[in-house]
Design a protein around this nucleic acid. Sequence first.
DNA 1: TATTGTTATACTCTATAACTATA
DNA 2: TATAGTTATAGAGTATAACAATA
Lengths: 146, 146
Amino acid sequence: MNDVKLTSTLAFRLGTLGAVVTERFSARLTAHDLKPKQVGLLAVLDSGAAASQLDIAKLMNVAPSLVVSLADRLEELGAVRRERDPSDRRRQTLTLTARGRDLLSACTEAAAEIDAELTEGLGPEEAEVLRGAMRKLAGRHGLPAD
Amino acid sequence: MNDVKLTSTLAFRLGTLGAVVTERFSARLTAHDLKPKQVGLLAVLDSGAAASQLDIAKLMNVAPSLVVSLADRLEELGAVRRERDPSDRRRQTLTLTARGRDLLSACTEAAAEIDAELTEGLGPEEAEVLRGAMRKLAGRHGLPAD
DNA sequence: TATTGTTATACTCTATAACTATA
DNA sequence: TATAGTTATAGAGTATAACAATA
């Protein structure tokens, strides 16, 4: 017999808790007129890991057409600058503006506040092991590891 | 200065890893013609925590109209039985069938396989602490704790 | 009147495919 | 011809609002 419950698997808990956390993050972002994916794009630019829209799409695992609309919105907000690459005029290079860095910083703070809420009921060592394990899992599954 | 990176917050990692895991779970469910929310409903019924559609909607934090369509589909698959409550004929009572229990069991096994993939790179103690912490977090944020 | 479930409708997010411009 | 980006269109998923049946 299999008396393991679905709801006690790591997979179920990661999926459902991830949705709750994203919803909570999203609620805080409304103050800055931002959506999670837009903030994700800011973080990609900040990391310096990609600059052209196509590279960004690959890194974020989203369709290139989605990057267009994310970048449109971020440009409207003054958070990114879009420039044609002079050496290959098909490429659009996105760069963070000062405003973009400020926004990313505010969003990072919002995430840190959620972290505090999440780890409130955990012991300090337990929280530290959790953070370490999540970092490893991220790295092993194609997400930023630092 | 705030040199904490967004991508290293617990909130970001839970959100993104949760999406990856849900996607992976979803891919395995296609073999049974099921979607994650439908399986979630099976798990609710199995737990005995709710039976009427409205109670289920509240428990799952979804709109009552969504429960209608989830239940329609599960009924088509022969996974649940829908009966009017004789004592209050407005209520529809959902119960798991043997087929529903089999499906839930298969989906639980799929989740357990994902768990194995996830914890592969972790030490046994580390994995155990991770499981314990996730259980606590689930319990504190309105998700099943057992 | 209030409540349960249902149906009709609309909204959000995202992908696919067709298109433009550069190479 | 192939590639980067864009636009047009479509699909999945879910919510809101109007409605029907029952209390």
